[in-house]
């Protein structure tokens, strides 16, 4: 039954202009970046910055808006003999898949054309994961806040924290603890931000040379090995699961 909801949501979203617009924007920007720099690596670096910035933002705002826009449909579904979990999960997966499809077309196509290598693939996978993480976060905010303005506010706050504030805090903490061994702390700080994890997974492919120094060697040991990559993947999975489970838990008890 969940997959039928997913299908409805996807069909509905593809009919609307926003997902198509998102795909078109990414497509344009990616082709622009790859053609501007001349070097594929430079294009990839530009795309990394762009995707780490745009994907969380769009996922958060779009998914939040979607929840409030289809509130009546959700109410209708809730009146049917359906489990609450099925309803919300259907919505979340539907939105995530629609955004992922846009990402695959908008960024995946240029990556395949211009930078079909391990770095490009890592970037694409990581962007897809971020789509799922932040869609889950958006739904968490939406099921908590009753009105749309608050929901969007929550979404923007989450984005601002993970995109910028967390980096600032990391820098501050590193400065404070300059004289101490920082391996454990850095790893914890990294794990606390899905965008940072995503960024570093790509950097391990992209800036190999710079990362061969002391700090890099540390990072390489932490994240570059098979266990490191497994750890990062596990933490990212947790970043999807935690907001998702919380959103479902709240939605089950929510008085619609």
């Amino acid at each position: 039954m969940m997959w039928r909801i997913v299908k409805y949501v996807c069909r509905d979203l593809f009919r609307g202009k926003i997902v198509l617009g998102y795909a078109a924007f990414l497509l344009l920007a990616s082709f622009g970046l790859f053609n501007l720099g001349g070097e594929p690596t430079k294009g990839l670096i530009g795309l990394l910055s762009l995707l780490l910035f745009v994907v969380p933002l769009v996922s958060l705002v779009f998914a939040t808006a979607h929840f409030y826009n289809s509130y009546e449909f959700i109410e209708l579904l809730a009146a049917q003999p359906l489990r609450r979990n099925t309803i919300l999960l259907g919505q979340i997966v539907g939105v995530s898949l629609a955004l992922s499809a846009a990402l695959l077309v908008g960024a995946g196509l240029p990556i395949v054309l211009y930078a079909a290598n391990l770095t490009g693939l890592t970037l694409l996978v990581v962007a897809l994961v971020l789509t799922f993480v932040f869609t889950a976060f958006a739904f968490l905010g939406a099921v908590i806040a009753r009105d749309k303005a608050r929901g969007i506010g929550f979404a923007l706050l989450v984005w601002f924290y993970f995109a910028l504030l967390h980096n600032g805090l990391t820098l501050y903490v590193l400065f404070l603890l300059e004289d101490y061994p920082l391996e454990g702390i850095s790893l914890t700080l990294l794990a606390l931000n899905p965008i940072d994890l995503a960024r570093l997974l790509v950097l391990l492919q992209l800036d190999v040379s710079a990362l061969m120094g002391y700090t890099g060697a540390m990072m390489q040991n932490l994240l570059g090995t098979a266990t490191g990559i497994a750890f990062a993947t596990g933490v990212l999975a947790l970043w999807i699961a935690a907001p998702l489970a919380t959103a479902l838990w709240i939605f089950r008890r929510k008085d619609l």
Binding site: F53, G168, L174, S186, R199, A210, Y214, M219
Partner: peptide, 16 residues
Amino acid sequence: RMPSSLLLLRSPLVHF
């Protein structure tokens, strides 16, 4: 000055 800040390479904050 502080090699461990390399962790923030290519982050939006550093970019700004």
